[in-house]
């Protein structure tokens, strides 16, 4: 039971729900950037929600199955085809031994999750099958897939079902990323803070699993201070500190970067706060040049949004009878 990689797509990696517990060594969380879609894909094919799947960005791979399996594609709208015939997204479909799975052009979103019954069976490294490419850790040989790779599959009973549009989630236009100000927020002026939320930003081309850069907004004005010893001379510099997952750093005060699943775990740039946990999945579905706004929330609102996402996941489970 295996899938052979005929063409790899742009950057297709094995991901599960991630590898928490090693951030203090600089090893990031990794795992799917849109974990809601990843869980949904696994539920459709009858896997554990945290089974390893393939995450394809912008462009799908072409895969050949050596045995029958159930497949589901969720996340960004990347239309699947079996032997050239279109299949729906957000719906389980069967494949036979020898079938080829390929993809049309991406219609919306950025990342598609390809779940296969039984899950992708790469070795577990530090508790996860996720790929951390920068550290050459986990996944298939610690890297994105290449033509000629062969991936083993686990045993799975398969599943069935459709997830209707009202149970899915996609970013709005502009995307609204809720954020709790904090960390080094006090380093910028009140006017700069007001403008940061008023501006509509655009996703920059430098947008990947490490982080998403945004451009087109107003440069920040900093509250003047004598730079602390060891911090560096730019007003955006701090003594190197941990960077939380979801934190928004602004090197030089110009272009904010939201760190994501393969985050660098620390460094010397001030951060304005964090995108709340409920909205991190949305970032994984943003294409370069798409507009986005940061929306200020309180901790209570962040926790309410988190509860909303858990309720959405519960509705999905109920819908699929899990």
């Amino acid at each position: 039971m295996a899938v052979n990689v005929i063409t790899p797509g742009l950057s297709t990696t094995v991901q599960d729900l991630g590898r928490p517990g090693y951030y203090h060594l600089g090893i990031p969380l990794s795992g799917g950037m849109d974990r809601f879609a990843l869980r949904a894909a696994n539920m459709l094919v009858g896997n554990d929600e945290g089974a390893a799947v393939l995450e394809a960005v912008f462009m799908g791979p072409e895969l050949e199955f050596t045995s029958a399996a159930t497949v589901a594609i969720t996340g960004g709208d990347l239309p699947p085809k079996v032997n050239g015939d279109e299949r729906p997204t957000w719906e389980a479909f069967p494949v036979k031994a020898g079938d080829r799975l390929s993809f049309g052009y991406l219609k919306s979103g950025a990342r598609a999750y390809i779940a296969i019954s039984g899950g992708v069976d790469v070795p577990v490294k530090l508790g996860s099958r996720s790929t951390y490419t920068l550290g050459a850790l986990g996944g298939h040989e610690g890297r994105a897939l290449k033509a000629g790779d062969s991936l083993s599959l686990g045993k799975g009973a398969g599943g069935k079902g459709i997830i209707p549009a009202n149970l899915r989630r996609q970013p709005g236009n502009p995307a609204e990323l809720r954020m709790l100000p904090g960390l080094y927020w006090h380093r910028i002026t009140a006017e700069a803070g007001r403008q940061f939320f008023a501006d509509t930003w655009k996703v920059a081309p430098e947008a990947d699993r490490i982080g998403y850069r945004f451009k087109g907004g107003t440069a920040l004005d900093f509250v003047p201070r004598e730079q602390p010893f060891g911090a560096g001379s730019n007003p955006s510099n701090i003594v190197d500190a941990c960077y939380p997952y979801g934190s928004i750093q602004v090197p030089g005060g110009t272009e904010p970067i939201v760190l994501h699943r393969d985050a660098v775990s620390g460094g010397g740039y001030m951060m304005l706060g964090c995108v709340i946990s409920a909205d991190m999945d949305l970032i994984g579905q943003l294409q370069p040049h798409s507009p986005a706004r940061f929306v200020e929330v309180t901790m209570d609102q962040a926790l309410a949004a988190r509860a909303d996402r858990q309720a959405a996941l519960a509705r999905l489970r109920a819908h699929l009878g899990r």
Partner: peptide
Amino acid sequence: FSFGGDEHIFAE
């Protein structure tokens, strides 16, 4: 101390 979103506490 400062909260980093709803999942972190940052302490300078």
